[in-house]
Amino acid sequence: MSSIGAVFSPYQHPPEDFRAAVHAAEAAGLSQLWLWEDCFRESAYASAAAALAWTENLRVGIGIAPLPLRNVAVTAMEVATIERMFPGRLMPGFGHGVLEWMGQAGARVKSPLTLMREQLPALRALLEGEEVTFSGRYVNLDRVRLDWPPDAAPAVYAAGEGPKTLALAGAVADGAILTGGYSSAEVVDQIARVRAGAREAGRENEPKIVSYLTAAFGDGAESRVREALGERGIDDDRAAWGDPAEVAQVVRRLRDVGIDDVVLSPAAGEPDLGEFFRAAVEVERLIG
């Protein structure tokens, strides 16, 4: 069964809005709440830990945190600490980050692909409790082992849009996050690239695929989507709007082409985030 998640956006909401949103998500019965770490807004790990502490059942996805901002050993410590405190409820995801922002922070690298190729295998090994020694272009570890690795390492996701990054996500991560805004026909090609990368790397398990989908419910839903994505964004199931049944139709098309979990991202101007979460839960029930 596909799971349906929803987004808490750091663009539309300051940190002080987060607690009420998390409680609304848990009260609605939402399966997954996703957040991300765009510069220079809100910390992914602080937010994820807080959300998990405030709830009992909600799973929290980080989709994504930028790889260049942290040493991989620090990232492993962050993820392992949260996973040990709240087992099985964190879904950490990583990406290149916006290059301009990485430059502003003094963290821009010449080869984001090389950074991902080095960081994610090292991160996954550390989370598995392995001792890691590695000398690369960006990652250099000397006998590093976590004192408190998680009992079971969480799946590590990688996000991407370009063909090389999608293939690399399949090769070095447990799952891939698609950014949304694409038609189901375009998504077929993206999934194929992820799976091809996994096969070429000799991965035994097929990567899990998560995709964002801009959505709006209720009065003015279509106009909010048009404002968010423009005219092209509402064609060919690049977004969804209407009542939960209409949104579920688009989600089914994504599921049918190979998306495992769909994360509904509220269009700008969403008037009631709690109601959005309740509608997302109804979508999940309808596609169950």
Rank of each mutant, 00 (worst) to 15 (best):
E42Q: 15
R238Y: 07
M85T: 14
A80K: 09
H96I: 13
A167N: 14
E83S: 06
P87E: 04
P244K: 14
P66A: 10
G242V: 02
Q249D: 14
G61W: 05
G88N: 10
A48W: 06
F276H: 07
W54F: 04
R226N: 08
L229T: 15
S3F: 09
V72L: 07
V283R: 00
G269N: 07
A228N: 08
Y157L: 12
E130R: 13
P14D: 15
F217S: 10
C39D: 13
G258Q: 08
R285Y: 06
L141F: 03
G181V: 00
V74L: 08
R84Y: 05
P150G: 10
G95L: 07
V188C: 01
S184Q: 07
S43I: 11
T214G: 01
A152N: 11
E161R: 02
V98P: 01
V283W: 01
G95K: 08
G269D: 14
N140Y: 05
R226K: 15
A185P: 11
F277S: 01
V7D: 02
E161G: 11
K164I: 15
T81G: 09
E231V: 11
L123T: 14
S111W: 02
D237M: 07
A201W: 07
E130Q: 12
L30Q: 02
H23F: 15
L141P: 11
F94E: 08
A239T: 14
E83Q: 10
C39A: 08
A51I: 12
E37P: 03
A248P: 12
Q249L: 14
F276C: 06
